[in-house]
Design a protein around this nucleic acid. Sequence first.
DNA 1: ACTGATTTGTTCGTATGTATC
DNA 2: AGATACATACGAACAAATCAG
Lengths: 243, 243
Amino acid sequence: MVQINKSEKIYEDLKMRILKGEFDENQILPIEKSLELEYNVSRNTIRKAIRQLNSEGLVYSKLGSANVVLQRVAVEDLLIDSGNMERGSKIQTKSNETKVLSLDLIIVDATLAAKSMFQIGTTCYHVIRLRLINGKPVMIDDSFFKSEVVPRLTKKIAQESIYRYIQSVTNHKIIGSRLVDRVILATDLDKNYLALKQENCIGLTQNWAYLDDGQIFEYTEIHFAPEQYVRTRFIGQKVGYIQ
Amino acid sequence: MVQINKSEKIYEDLKMRILKGEFDENQILPIEKSLELEYNVSRNTIRKAIRQLNSEGLVYSKLGSANVVLQRVAVEDLLIDSGNMERGSKIQTKSNETKVLSLDLIIVDATLAAKSMFQIGTTCYHVIRLRLINGKPVMIDDSFFKSEVVPRLTKKIAQESIYRYIQSVTNHKIIGSRLVDRVILATDLDKNYLALKQENCIGLTQNWAYLDDGQIFEYTEIHFAPEQYVRTRFIGQKVGYIQ
DNA sequence: ACTGATTTGTTCGTATGTATC
DNA sequence: AGATACATACGAACAAATCAG
């Protein structure tokens, strides 16, 4: 069991209680004062937990009134919650396998530099991997890793976990990714590997991954078969903002 | 000028300073103590502002070390930042137009109930709207609104702003949306209106919109032409989480 | 490699503001 | 109009990770 702090524990507990339907009757949480007493913490700690519930779209804090529990959507349980990848996605629980299609050491040219944000002349590994879940091909990772960060990358390492490898050979942590999602025409590679049906398009996710020194060390284009491409998120409306 | 609070002002200011490149040399912010003095506020207020920068992927707070400014990605300035829709998207600044293709009053059946989360038997408006930006068709909104929330909806209202109408006739605020993005085969409607080229797919965003009492009042399927469909987000890595 | 100083992280208590009931 | 409940802000203490000598 991981040791987490009070606000995190309270967040997890309240989330569980919400999803179990404990507050379905009135659709509001108990007032903050009573949560203080119940969990025996300060109001700030309660508020920190509720802030997390707000950002996930489980609760709306209504000034002067209450912390309102939002109506749930049926599909959401089935989906990988992209707004919550930090906690590990549900995909992890399934059997998955990686097939390395190619691995080359290359020098960054102008075209790649513009996309990847790597400097021209940088040496990096170009890795193409096919990802299978329960034996079914679901995505292709077309990746570039700064060789400085993953020295002596091999197919074997790429097949296991490059991230684990990085964290074992560097002092740096991987702290997050900036993602851009698009829909594009399928490439020949996609058609060969992704078992597309009628569709001639795929979901593309561009991924710039960061180390804790603030630098991008990886640029990946993830190609998804359409039915595999699903994203969920919650967006709070700014007061006064009108569509 | 909107009146915003201290932490929000500091957040905006730091963001502007980051984007102007003020911290590019060391790629870190001044320490919190000196920001306290500079802005003449408490440390908590500084930390609240920095927390916002963290969630947007502009800064990574490194325990025991510094608030690291993350390397920027070139494309991000060009895009609608979906993680920041609360502040209004850039799309707003362009000239846009809405064409109402149809408007009907219907009763929710089992199929629609399952998707929309409306109860079977609810009366609602079914509205299909074509959205144009700078004269170019970019998306189709296939929407269902609870008639209880938008009584006497007309084509004229739908062409202007349904949201503005709602906020004028109800006591309730619109507080946010849960979104699910997918890639699907284009329908005939899409092919007719979205000026697709070779592509036979579109980007689909399902949108459940909430009122401040926690209830869903709108379900919309937004159909995007592929080149119009772009999403950006930042996902922080949970410590110990390995791909 | 160790120690002390520095810096961010969490929590507490309190006061005051603002919207709602 | 008064009470209630969430929002913002301050100051302080201590923990945990990092950094500098």
